[in-house]
Design a binder for these strands. Structure first.
Lengths: 204, 204
DNA sequence: AGATAATTAGACTGACATGTCAGTCTAATG
DNA sequence: CATTAGACTGACATGTCAGTCTAATTATCT
């Protein structure tokens, strides 16, 4: 087996084990057993369990990063809303294409250690600021009304995270991706309030 | 020291260590050092590290559970929106009162093991169904328009989670709780769309 | 084919965390 | 003063697992 093949097969075995048992409950022995290699072989390709986890994790973050485009206005660009829909489509699709890898991000990476936590935090901050940028742009274009965009972008990021978490579970009961995106965009734009009644009630 | 005091002081030491280093990177030795007790004493009060974690974790879940009330319509009840605002206020306040405990839920509990994951999943499912119930009620009252309430309630739950995560961080840069709640309710009701322009653009 | 290099197997070692248990200490009681 | 209850101690036995090492095997080159 070629070195590159071997490396990938080890990565894959580790990914499967992490997805099943989590990082801490996966031993090197588990990984080499699944990859069907000897103990020493593992150390020819990776320094330790942590390095193989980082390789998987960084690979996912990079893929998500690549699939998120900043929303801009330009003659050759589609309308902003379409750009947003396409962003959502790409990350949802990415997650569904490799649910095991995605579950590492949602279930097993948080709380691993402070370095990983910082990576995750920086990553979500980046996404939130991307959303915020889109909102600011929308306000400039007069299609989005004023608001605490920082707060709202955090809220939206959390919502999208939760949806992604759900669609990458083994028992995924969520609707089709396009259906989800339509519904989310509608909700985020129009809100919940029925147009027929004024329901804002202030207290005290 | 009275047994009950001792128990609490051990719980507290463990909580602090978990918050600092996480569950896996906290050893029994770390806990007893911080609690300033001997090794044997720990085992007089807890079976193992897992039992002390569960005690902390279950305590938090129960507190959150207690502070969430189902939104209902009744003569002696405040308006639904006020009930929702009060629910949000209670859980935000709860989290801020003991941020270390809250961070265990957000950072350290997920991915610990399948039992804990199930607890977390069931817990968030319950919250989401609570939100969903409120939306269904709102639709019956004609103040909420139709939509995929299951999906939207998941989205909202994720958003609230993310906000709670942020306000319980050591470096909390979020606005005041009441400000957050106002902004969230407004966003969820009215959405982002400026009233002055029709921005719905469908693609293809 | 024979020599040499690369790769692999898996037994082994050392570090470390857990949980136990025989014994100590303190304060209350007889 | 003697005894007892029970909270507390910490040395130690046990188990686990990461990472190393050597011998065997396989592949590559001359």
């Amino acid at each position: 087996m070629l070195p590159e093949e071997r490396r990938l097969s080890i990565l894959n075995a580790a990914k499967e084990m992490f997805a099943i048992n989590g990082y801490h409950d996966t031993s090197i022995s588990d990984i080499i057993k699944r990859a069907d290699i000897a103990r020493g072989t593992f150390y020819l390709y990776f320094k330790d369990k942590r390095e193989i986890f980082d390789a998987l994790f960084d690979q996912l973050l990079q893929k998500i990063n690549e699939s998120l485009m900043r929303v801009t206005i330009a003659p050759d660009q589609k309308p902003p809303l379409d750009q947003i829909a396409e962003n959502l489509h790409r990350i949802f699709q990415l997650a569904m294409n490799d649910p095991e890898l995605a579950r590492i991000l949602f279930r097993h990476a948080p709380g691993l250690d402070s370095i990983t936590d910082q990576k995750i935090e920086g990553f979500y901050n980046k996404i939130a600021s991307l959303v915020e940028g889109a909102l600011v742009l929308g306000e400039k274009m007069n299609i989005v009304k004023k608001g605490d965009f920082k707060l709202i972008s955090i809220f939206i990021t959390g919502g999208v995270k939760e949806i992604m978490d759900r669609i990458t579970r083994p028992e995924n009961h969520m609707p089709q991706i396009d259906k989800i995106i339509k519904e989310l965009i509608d909700f985020n734009l129009q809100g919940l309030a029925s147009g027929t009644a004024d329901i804002v009630q202030t207290q005290e």
